[in-house]
Design a protein around this nucleic acid. Structure first.
Length: 467
RNA sequence: GCUUCCUUAGCUCAGCCGGUUAGAGCAUCUGACUGUUAAUCAGAGGGUCCCUGGUUCGAGCCCAGGAGGGAGCGCCA
């Protein structure tokens, strides 16, 4: 009779002992002596591995080695699930059959039992998911993605899919990657030969990869009420920092009839929900990251769950920064955007908690943000987190057709490309608000990792698209 | 894109003021050990000192250029 394969996590939690089980996974370590061998097997189902005990009478060490039961090999193990005789684990498998499914030559296999830098692991992105660190990060990443959908679903939001390929380059959120099927050599030119003729391209116009689903999200919000997007997003800036990727995932809720206050409440509830979800559902993985990388991680996550975010106006923030004793590399002036060092001072030194800054000067924010009555500021909202900086950027949107077209003219945003966006203000316009959350920045915060390239399986950044 | 630091064994790193044959821990291999927890102990093998050129009696070390990587900044989520 064949026994169905169990996951390692299932067996580690099992109360049902003295039964035959089968596990399949990868060998993390093999150790022991000429009488008994211990093989830690991990199948990725959770942080912990299960200990397989192999007695020498049946499994001499030389035989195990010759068969390839070594660090990194894929194995299938059949045996009895029993209470552990040793300390450090409650159950273990007394092996009766060990089959090597795929060898990993120990003299060549790059992952060893000790000491790998994150930089080295980045160069072997095809193998790094097998490490404790990346297993933990990827499981937490999954949990966060799941929690995003759960949060919005529970609150009556609808998940909308906004396009990956977009036809407008007027979104103003940065440099874009071009999408074309025109030949690289001698593309068709316009009649006066002054430019490439995109009328002959696949879509009949110039197209790019999306930098934001917001404008399309607004369409959906003004029909379905509460919506969110969660999809890949592309920025072609030559940006080289530990907080930027050329391809990342962004979550953008958009809610009809929400004002800026509602928007702040939503952002705060959302972030706190996600962090609490991680604390409750990713304990083993977070404990490891806390011990290995960042001793203050768990404390910091708990702090976010327990405390309200500090909310204040941009103008007030400028006042605080101007009277700060700390010297800044860049001067603080009303009307200029805050630098990273200013944001960090507010979050990490002054308030020592997450900060929501609102009502920024209109000249440093996007055209679609709602103008305040002072005619100087817009209803923008940035959520600033310790170590991360801006984790969320959002706003109440300008719902007045007249004011919106005026802002677009001032900022040289061509109306004809966004005719559909303007019609939303022409037909049944309504107040509405939304924001964008960079998913990897969330994962960065929750895992305590230092570099955003280590919280996405296959990072894309300038000069790097291997794997 | 700017600034700055780094590149020495499979991995992590030391290498003095420029001076004989370049070292350690881990990994690998050989042996020891009856329950280990990144097992331990003894021994062995393992090097294009990132590349190219230069200075020098002599370069891992100094100089120039190139490549790769990190950090900070800018841009942003």
């Amino acid at each position: 009779m064949s026994v169905r394969r169990s996951s390692v996590q299932e067996l580690l939690r099992s109360q049902e002992l003295e039964r035959e089980v089968v596990v399949k996974g990868w060998v993390r370590t093999r150790r022991g002596n000429k009488y008994v061998q211990f093989i830690a097997v991990n199948d990725g189902s959770g942080f912990n591995s299960i200990q397989v005990v192999a007695n020498a009478e049946q499994f001499p060490e030389e035989q195990l080695k010759a068969d390839g039961v070594e660090n990194g090999a894929a194995v299938a193990v059949r045996g009895q699930l029993v209470a552990s005789q040793g300390k450090g684990q409650t159950v273990e498998i007394q092996a009766t059959e060990i089959t090597v499914l795929g060898k990993a030559d120990p003299t060549e296999y790059p992952l060893q039992k000790k000491g790998h830098s994150l930089e080295f692991l980045r160069e072997i992105a095809h193998l790094r998911p097998r490490t404790n660190t990346f297993g933990a990060v990827l499981r937490i990443r999954h949990a966060m993605a799941f929690a995003v959908h759960q949060f919005f679903n529970d609150q009556g939001f609808f998940y909308v899919h906004t396009p990956i390929i977009t036809g407008s380059d007027a979104e103003g959120a940065g440099q874009m990657f071009r999408v074309t099927t025109l030949p690289e050599q001698n593309p068709p030119l316009t009649e006066d030969k002054s430019a490439v003729d995109y009328k002959q391209d696949f879509f009949g116009k110039q197209t790019n990869l999306t930098v934001s689903g917001q404008l399309e999200g607004e369409i959906a919000a003004l029909a379905l009420g509460k919506v969110y997007t969660f999809g890949p997003t592309f920025r072609a800036e030559n940006s080289n920092t530990a907080r930027h990727l050329a391809e990342f995932w962004m979550i953008e809720p958009e809610v009809a009839f929400n004002d800026l206050q509602d928007n702040m409440d939503l952002a705060e509830d959302f972030l706190r929900y996600l962090v609490r979800y991680a604390l409750e559902n990713c304990q083993d993985d977070l404990k490891f990251l806390n011990e290995q990388y960042d001793k203050e991680l768990l404390g910091r996550l708990q702090f976010v769950v327990d405390n309200d975010f500090q909310r204040l106006n941009y103008t007030e923030a400028v006042g605080i920064l101007k009277s700060a004793k700390q010297k800044f590399e860049f001067p603080v002036d009303w009307g200029t955007d805050l630098q990273s060092e200013h944001e960090r001072y507010l979050v990490e030194k002054h308030f020592k908690k997450p900060v929501i800054l609102i009502n920024y000067p209109k000249d440093i924010k996007a055209f679609y943000m709602k103008l305040n009555d002072d005619n100087q500021t817009v209803r923008a909202m940035d959520v600033l987190f310790p170590g991360i900086g801006e984790i969320i950027g959002g706003s109440e949107r300008e719902e007045s057709l007249e004011k919106l077209t005026k802002r677009m003219a001032e900022m040289n945003v061509p109306e004809h490309e966004l005719w559909w966006y303007l019609e939303l203000r022409k037909y049944g316009t309504a107040p509405h608000s939304g924001f964008g959350l960079g998913f990897e920045r969330l994962v960065l915060f929750v895992t305590g990792m230092a570099n955003i390239r280590d919280v996405i399986p296959f990072p894309r950044f300038p000069k790097s698209a291997e794997f």
